[in-house]
Design a protein around this nucleic acid. Sequence first.
DNA 1: CATGAATGAGCATTCATTCAT
DNA 2: AATGAATGAATGCTCATTCAT
Lengths: 175, 175, 175, 175
Amino acid sequence: MTEKQEKILNAALKLFAEEGFRSTSTSKVAKAAGVSEGLIFRHFTNKEGLLQAIIQMGEERAKELFSDIVLEPDAKELLRKYIELPLKVKNDKEALEFWKLQFKIKWELELYGEHKMIVIEEALIRAFDQLRYNEPEKEANLLLTLMDGLATRGILQETYELDEATKFIKQKYKV
Amino acid sequence: MTEKQEKILNAALKLFAEEGFRSTSTSKVAKAAGVSEGLIFRHFTNKEGLLQAIIQMGEERAKELFSDIVLEPDAKELLRKYIELPLKVKNDKEALEFWKLQFKIKWELELYGEHKMIVIEEALIRAFDQLRYNEPEKEANLLLTLMDGLATRGILQETYELDEATKFIKQKYKV
Amino acid sequence: MTEKQEKILNAALKLFAEEGFRSTSTSKVAKAAGVSEGLIFRHFTNKEGLLQAIIQMGEERAKELFSDIVLEPDAKELLRKYIELPLKVKNDKEALEFWKLQFKIKWELELYGEHKMIVIEEALIRAFDQLRYNEPEKEANLLLTLMDGLATRGILQETYELDEATKFIKQKYKV
Amino acid sequence: MTEKQEKILNAALKLFAEEGFRSTSTSKVAKAAGVSEGLIFRHFTNKEGLLQAIIQMGEERAKELFSDIVLEPDAKELLRKYIELPLKVKNDKEALEFWKLQFKIKWELELYGEHKMIVIEEALIRAFDQLRYNEPEKEANLLLTLMDGLATRGILQETYELDEATKFIKQKYKV
DNA sequence: CATGAATGAGCATTCATTCAT
DNA sequence: AATGAATGAATGCTCATTCAT
């Protein structure tokens, strides 16, 4: 990975997250990265390839972010960490960009990256089971759905009070 | 509103919902509507104007959809109706298109249409208040967020079991 | 066929004949025709479509050119007319352009437009038959081949003395 | 001439002959030759230089091919050999590639390589003279032209029966 | 000798928009 | 109201070529 390759990747991530994949032209990316437009294609074949490279980069960062949650042995602590995730992401400029891009792509290209969430889902099920909830699968699913909504609002609705909402949810789950 | 005007609006709604605003060219809309491309601009000034016209059309349909909920006097019944909304929308092909478009636009243009939801929020607050919930505002906000997540998944995740989830949520709220 | 459409066609014919199909950019055609580049695509879909339109135009002109030969009742006169064809073409600036393009395309795209020649071949066979040649088919084929060579040289080899060669061939066939 | 140099030359010959000079990118040549694109420029300065190298290579092979004809002392035998040349070339895969390229370039770049043919022309003149033809120069020129046509068809027209045509021509010249 | 990163100009094509009819 | 010709700017991508290593 050369220096310019990274510059392209970073510029593209930022622009795709801000303005969307289709609305961001390769020439804009090149200009922002301070490289020639042709270089994008030499390294990533085409615009789609550039997106894939960014998504993969995101997957890896997501894995890191998730591993801390999934490996948590204490059920209550696990729930707490998961619920606090959006807040944590929002305060980390770089992570926020990745997350925003994930959501934007979800809607722009209508592809829901399920597999990434399965490991989280299973961890939540185990946690709810441990905490003696009656229907751990449904509880896990509900929480996942709620967090999707929380992330949506946290990203899009400028006035949304994410920490208030987070606190209230933790209270609900007694964590 | 002439016949051709309506044809344009319908074609645009469908295409914008399916493929996104920016990805849909005016020529595609014209072709789908069976009119000349110029006519779009005569009637709606520019592409943005066409989008605004569709959004406004959506607002009106949303109002209709919401009025039934907002005017419901019984608190439990109100919650039930609101929770069942995504399911209802998903089974109505035309309504689904509108809803999908709303979400797509939310993400593509990053504008969260808050004002439309305020009347719903107030109705929910009243309902939770009536049902003696301790923090009716926070409860209303939580439910709104949850429903955002539910709609997201219902639209995007093909495997999502919307009716199961709906049933579970109703159970949680005892409605 | 609007005025600009014709301008495009003429400019393209000239440029394709002079510099070849692939070497001529659509922007060059547009500039030479004095129109916007986009107009080419509105009228002819793509560069290939532009070429097809020109080729078809050429077919029609070729038909005119050939009809005079094919319909000639006198065998000797028919041969004479056919042999003199390259000379006639070379002296008609517009016809020469068409012919040059035909040959260039033959080589650039490796497609030999046989069907256009079949009616000529049949006319030649009849003529040789009438003139009591032993193997009229082979004679027709030979003359066709010779004329291919004559045209090739007449177009490409600047020093080629086309009228001398034509005279000698007529002498050979006693026409 | 290093091994890689030869690989480049062979790959380029094949591609130029198949797809034309302008349509073949240097990157395609490099890939086909299994070398880096830069190496082409180190060895041949630019794309044009690569073409010249191939053409020169062709000249040498043509000389070999022609020497057998030119040095033939018997006039009839000389004619026969020359007339059979296209057939011989067509059956030699490698020679055919060279020949095809020569013709393609002739049309693509509109340069008719006359000098290569002068020695053949002179040999033909001597032969026709020896055989007491009245106008040996014109006869030589006619045969050269005919063979141009024969080669054209032999290469381009898939259905062309080259051996039949060859046989008929030999018959005509009684060789 | 050989590579592969890097460039800038150019390519065919699409786009939103204007305008005369 | 409605059309279809016309435009100019932009788009994703390819090209021949250069250069540091």
